[in-house]
């Protein structure tokens, strides 16, 4: 079974922000909400600069999911971590927990008023019916259901950003690494997909988490 993951190849990423805008465009994400952002390490330092594009990594043992007071996260068969905006209470806990700063909120949070959390969906929509208007309005497009890959990865200017089945993209990446003989670090994987010794980590039960509206067949 496919397990969706991202790899951002920092030997290729050029901070072009295509991924970030592709996401805005595809999902009509409002100003201030950045499902994906691009970060440069050692900016301007000769020989040391590296750029990485980061969004929700759809962690195996997702901290956001663990801390959500209303348990509105769920995981799809493909390992995509999604959430239900209808139940989200905008408490911000997921953003405190997320290592990558993925959860975003439409407003600033004075009096705790943040609005519903929004984050990268791996272009897989949300619990609403696939391709429905409700789904689009709340979560954006559901490209996976259309048989497409994430918009950000598809439009990446240099194909630095790979999004898809973890094994497949790791293969592509490995081929590159072998060819160039360096830059083998798969950024963020340890944090996102590493085995957690945490006893609190429940194995996700995708089916049980699917809110009303359908069953996985």
């Amino acid at each position: 079974m496919a397990r969706m993951k991202f790899i951002c190849d920092s030997e290729r990423c050029i901070e072009c922000n295509s991924c970030a805008t592709a996401c805005k465009n595809e999902h009509e994400v409002p100003w201030g909400v950045n499902r994906r952002r691009v970060v440069t390490i050692n900016d301007g330092v000769i020989g040391q600069e590296k750029t990485i594009s980061v969004a929700c990594m759809h962690c195996s043992d997702a901290p956001c999911m663990a801390v959500c007071p209303v348990d509105c996260f769920y995981r799809t068969d493909e390992g995509v971590v999604l959430h239900n905006k209808d139940t989200c209470i905008g408490c911000g806990y997921c953003s405190y927990a997320c290592p990558f700063g993925a959860p975003q909120f439409p407003s600033n949070g004075t009096f705790g008023l943040r609005g519903k959390m929004d984050k990268c969906t791996f272009c897989a929509g949300g619990p609403e019916e696939n391709g429905s208007k409700a789904e689009f309005d709340k979560y954006g497009r559901n490209r996976l259901a259309e048989g497409k890959l994430p918009a950000c990865a598809e439009m990446c200017s240099t194909k630095a950003l790979l999004g898809g089945d973890g094994d497949a993209i790791a293969d592509i990446f490995r081929t590159r690494v072998i060819r160039r003989g360096k830059g083998s670090e798969v950024w963020g994987w340890g944090t996102a997909y590493g085995k957690s010794p945490n006893p609190d980590a429940k194995a996700p039960t995708p089916n049980a988490k699917v809110p009303e509206g359908g069953k996985v067949s």
Binding site: G32, R37, V39, N42, Q48, I52, V54, W187, T191
Partner: peptide
Amino acid sequence: PTWRIVKEGTQNYSSLPYKEAGILIQ
């Protein structure tokens, strides 16, 4: 050394003006 910086949670460069936008991993 680069990845060490990432894991240390340093504030790196991001053109977005939002705080912590430049942190890759907490």
